[in-house]
């Protein structure tokens, strides 16, 4: 096989795949953040913790109840989504009339509580989750593990499914209308508060689903969410939260760029997304897909 700029193709494509996987999680999480922010005007700092809860719920189902991965894929998002609905009903809805910052502070507090409780219970070293799709395919230029291929496909389906639901269905049109003018939509007889609650539940469920997908790849770890959420924030700043498709594309693209950085200049791989954020802020402050207000 050929060599690319002195990098063996195995390493290059391996990192590219890793980047694509990371990008899939950036895309899924920033998508959820964007959907929640659109309707609730709340930046959900708990998003990372809910992603972590998803991974732990899958682990608990397997270890304690014996429910396999594929069952967890259905049960966990519903379960964690329900806890999200509870949070919205109990706390978040009291803050909608206030400055957005209070929503951020509240969800930050909730994230601390959740992370602290899990660290107390499980320590911070991480628990292994068995790979439900062992084996892989040997391609010309690299080895493709089955499970990683599945994660890329699943996340693409999830992202575009969400995009389709919001941009192309009747339910989605209600949602978009409620983002613009909740009062008018309410006047047309649509129960907007319930829609807000369900949207939050949906966003949280999406984060939990991402957590289940992540469990076999990364160790199940109480701090997995907080490490990720800050990067996702940077992704959101780069993409702008105005567009669903923008969030998806930005997420995947940044994952790939990060993967490439690991190959060509590993020292910067931790910071490359933040550097891109700084450049985007200089060139196009509203974000690549955002509209300046």
């Amino acid at each position: 096989m050929f060599e690319l700029l002195g990098i063996p193709p195995q390493a290059l494509f391996g990192q590219l795949l890793l980047g694509l996987i990371n990008g899939a999680f950036y895309a899924m999480l920033s998508l959820g953040l964007a959907v929640i922010f659109g309707l609730l005007n709340v930046i959900n700092f708990t998003h990372g913790a809910q992603y972590m809860m998803g991974a732990f719920a899958a682990w608990m189902l397997l270890e304690w109840v014996g429910v396999p991965y594929w069952g967890a894929l259905i049960i966990v998002p519903v379960l964690i989504g329900a806890t999200g609905i509870l949070l919205e009903k109990l706390f978040l809805k009291r803050l909608y009339h206030l400055d957005h910052l209070y929503g951020l502070l509240l969800t930050f507090g909730l994230a601390l509580i959740i992370e602290g409780l899990f660290r107390k219970q499980f320590g911070s070293s991480g628990l292994p989750y068995p790979n439900p799709l062992p084996g892989g395919t040997r391609l010309d230029f690299m080895f493709l593990p089955n499970y990683r291929a599945w994660v890329v496909v699943a996340s693409l389906v999830l992202c575009f499914g969400t995009w389709f639901m919001i941009e192309r269905t009747k339910l989605g049109s209600y949602l978009r209308a409620a983002v613009e003018r909740p009062d008018l939509v309410q006047a047309f007889g649509i129960n907007v508060p319930r829609m807000i609650t369900l949207t939050y539940g949906f966003g949280v469920g999406l984060a939990a689903l991402a957590g289940v997908l992540a469990a076999p790849i990364y160790n199940v770890n109480p701090v997995m969410g907080s490490n990720l959420i800050i990067i996702v924030f940077a992704v959101v700043v780069i993409g702008g939260m105005g567009s669903i498709l923008g969030a998806i594309i930005t997420g995947f693209a940044l994952g790939i760029i990060e993967g490439l950085t690991k190959v060509f200049y590993p020292e910067a791989s931790n910071t490359v997304i933040f550097i891109i954020m700084a450049i985007v802020l200089m060139v196009k402050p509203a974000g690549l897909f955002g509209t300046p207000k």
């Binding site: 209070y102 502070l105 509240l106 507090g109 909730l110 601390l112 509580i113 959740i114 602290g116 660290r119």
Partner: peptide, 14 residues
């Protein structure tokens, strides 16, 4: 400590 700080955040904001 983390949990208690989280609770203080929630209580103060609410």
């Amino acid at each position: 400590v983390l949990v208690i700080q989280g609770f203080i955040f929630v209580i103060v904001v609410l």
